[in-house]
């Protein structure tokens, strides 16, 4: 292949040739992304300015964007999502960081086993794990059986029937599912920190806590930033857990923004313009939060 091509393009300089090869490799992906991703995004943005039911749409300016702030259910879903974000993301990332630095210990035995065990939840499908959590926390589910056997409860507690406990169950489920995923990022980040740095710290008499806060955390900062942005993004788009674990209930106490958007598009009389506008709010929120996190976290320049 290279022979024939070389013969044809002999006039080009080496640099130009390399550039051209690069572009040839890039083009298919670029075209696909533009057509499959960016074009629909632009279409959705135009759609978000249209109001009306089903396909009787007409241009409505900012109506949809104003409407969503008057929509009590959407505001409820917004606050639910932020509740998950504020509690779950920090807890999960701190847990992942602690686990990662523990598993990075050179003297630890069965490291591979522990790493696999913690990462494994990530390999389960979102829907199936949500359904399993639902049955675990059911009135006659495993958790209640254990609590009754231990004498902590007399009768089964309906975890998913109470607003606060239902939210906590979702957060526990999310932490179970995603901690291992983030831990892997930290583990790979830790491989880039020279072990001699830790040895030097040890010789200087630093405690494990000091090593963690003075060496591990600062050196892992880029990775922490990456995982924070990814987790924020993921949590704002949370859908499966709300739909499958709690069905948004009780009384919309656990419904997420994406779940509400889905209801508005497919369960109810479709309001695609409004749904698109709400999706764009999520997009804007992700962008703002990522920007803030970059400003706070990335001090490279």
């Amino acid at each position: 292949m290279s022979q024939t091509k070389g013969a044809k393009k002999r006039k080009l300089s080496l640099e130009k040739k390399h550039n051209l090869t690069g572009w040839i490799f890039l083009t298919p992906a670029t075209i696909m992304i533009a057509v499959m991703s960016f074009w629909p995004m632009i279409q959705a943005f135009i759609l978000s300015f249209q109001t009306g039911k089903a396909n009787k749409l007409k241009f409505g300016g900012f109506t949809n964007y104003i409407r969503m702030f008057q929509d009590k259910d959407f505001m409820q879903s917004l606050s639910n999502t932020f509740f998950y974000l504020i509690i779950q993301v920090p807890v999960m990332l701190i847990l992942a960081l602690i686990l990662a630095s523990m598993l990075n210990n050179k003297n630890l035995r069965f490291k591979g086993l522990f790493r696999t065990a913690i990462f494994l939840p990530c390999a389960t499908s979102l829907v199936s794990y949500a359904i399993i959590f639902r049955s675990l926390f059911g009135v006659d589910g495993f958790i209640n059986s254990v609590l009754i056997k231990l004498g902590i409860l007399n009768t089964g507690y309906n975890f998913l029937g109470n607003a606060t406990s239902a939210k906590i169950v979702i957060i526990i489920a999310l932490i179970w599912r995603w901690t291992g995923y983030n831990m892997v990022f930290y583990l790979s980040g830790l491989q880039n920190i020279e072990y001699s740095v830790y040895e030097a710290a040890k010789i200087d008499g630093a405690s494990p806590m000091q090593t963690f806060f003075k060496i591990t955390v600062p050196l892992l900062k880029p990775t922490i930033l990456l995982t924070t942005i990814m987790s924020t993004n993921g949590t704002l788009q949370l859908f499966d857990e709300s739909v499958n674990l709690t069905k948004g209930g009780p009384s919309n106490a656990t419904i997420t923004m994406s779940h509400y958007i889905y209801d508005q598009s497919f369960k109810y009389v479709p309001k695609f313009g409004y749904a698109a506008a709400m999706s764009f709010l999520i997009f804007i929120l992700v962008a703002i939060l990522a920007f803030i996190q970059m400003k706070v976290g990335d001090k490279r320049d």
Binding site: R134, G138, V139, D140, G161
Partner: peptide, 17 residues
């Protein structure tokens, strides 16, 4: 009695609760 999902609803009948 209220249960949380369809499967639990069916099992209240099949398990004689």
């Amino acid at each position: 009695v209220e249960v949380n999902d369809w499967d639990q609803y069916i099992s209240t009948m099949t398990t004689e609760t």
